[in-house]
């Protein structure tokens, strides 16, 4: 199954009952799968007039307590930032998929990782962050889609599922979880006042002190997520003295390169952040006691590398960077040569 189809199927199984989206390459198959399948379970598929409209439809469906998803790719995600900021302010759960492509501007439609900053910093206006999950296989796309809905509901926050054109198009076997039969209660949702008291949902907080309290409340939530929800894979790290740091597609390429390098006797391993926000600082700090050098590998000019450097600012280890932006997909052979170069430098 392709990555885009897999996300859609996993979402439906996770109880997603509304999907709003606008076509953009390279993630169209996701919306198309939803159009064909979500109605079979009584769900709603609607092709919106724009990404801006789609994300606001997401707000509407989230506000009444429905599990809801939208998906897009880089330029479309920029348009959704208004709604992401509102979702964070309202504290509404929703899952937003970004299958990144080359940029800036229209860029191209090839896989890239240039939206790391936008994703992890809270790409819209105001003081918030968006938790980001970065899968690296089709199986993980399914698992993390299900997890994204659970986290969104538990922490009342929009969750970004960050892949790229390659993750979306790639085909691999996948085992889906059983469909969820029971979803969490959402007592805060607007379902009409009925016989109870009326409620409202607003992100407008005119009083400065109250707004400040709300900002700190969001921070506490992110801190709690950092403690409980940070995910990171360590690959061939047991005896490694050199660590590659990569996520998503580049992590897959890095694994191939590391296998080659291992055959040639290099003690190389991979640290793969699965949650990009919260970022696995503590795991990197632990690894820093073991290795002499880190090599961050991204399909960008260097974004995650800043988080790695921040995490390791108090340790003496070297942090290097290798990037291929613009939609260029490096090969494992190419990257294994890069590993050799930095590895030799480390041992000089």
């Amino acid at each position: 199954m392709s990555g885009n189809h897999c996300i859609a199927e996993a979402a439906i199984r996770a109880g997603c009952r509304c999907y709003f989206g606008y076509p953009i390459t390279p993630q169209n198959e996701l919306g198309e799968y939803m159009a064909a399948n979500i109605r079979k379970v009584g769900g709603v598929f609607l092709q919106s007039e724009s990404e801006t409209a789609a994300i606001n439809m997401v707000i509407g469906a989230a506000s009444v307590g429905t599990r809801v998803m939208t998906s897009s790719s880089s330029p479309g995600i920029s348009l959704k930032q208004e709604g992401l900021s509102f979702l964070a302010g309202f504290e509404f759960p929703a899952v937003i998929v970004n299958m990144m492509r080359g940029g800036p501007g229209l860029g191209n439609i090839a896989p890239a990782q240039g939206d790391y900053f936008q994703s992890t910093r809270g790409g819209g206006h105001g003081d918030y962050r968006t938790p980001v999950l970065a899968p690296a296989s089709v199986q993980e796309l399914a698992d993390l889609t299900v997890k994204a809905f659970a986290l969104a509901d538990e922490y009342r926050t929009p969750i970004l599922l960050l892949g790229d054109g390659m993750m979306g198009q790639m085909k691999e076997p996948v085992v889906f979880p059983e469909p969820l039969s029971e979803l969490p209660e959402k007592p805060w949702a607007l379902k009409g006042r009925g016989d109870g008291a009326s409620r409202y949902q607003a992100s407008l907080i005119l009083d400065g002190l109250a707004m400040e309290r709300h900002n700190w409340k969001l921070v506490r939530k992110y801190k709690e997520m950092a403690e409980k929800e940070t995910l990171c894979e360590l690959y061939m790290m047991d005896d490694a003295d050199f660590a590659v740091v990569a996520y998503g597609t580049t992590a897959r390429i890095a694994k191939g390169a590391i296998k080659r390098a291992r055959k040639e006797g290099l003690k190389v391993g991979l640290v793969r952040p699965v949650t990009l926000f919260p970022f696995p600082d503590k795991i990197l700090q632990k690894v820093a006691h073991q290795v002499k050098s880190f090599l961050v590998f991204e399909m960008s000019t260097g974004q995650m590398v800043e988080d790695v450097r921040l995490a390791l600012c108090e340790s003496q280890v070297e942090v290097s960077f290798h990037g291929r932006p613009g939609g260029v997909i490096p090969t494992p052979i190419e990257f294994s040569r890069v590993i050799h170069r930095y590895y030799r430098r480390m041992h000089k």
């Binding site: 709003f20 609607l46 801006t52 409209a53 439809m57 707000i59 469906a61 607003a202």
Partner: peptide
């Protein structure tokens, strides 16, 4: 029950809520 919207997005939010 009342929800607030971003500027101009009222009928998109209304669409999402009514469809859901």
């Amino acid at each position: 029950d009342v929800i607030e919207s971003a500027h101009g997005r009222g009928t998109a939010i209304a669409t999402g809520a009514k469809r859901a």
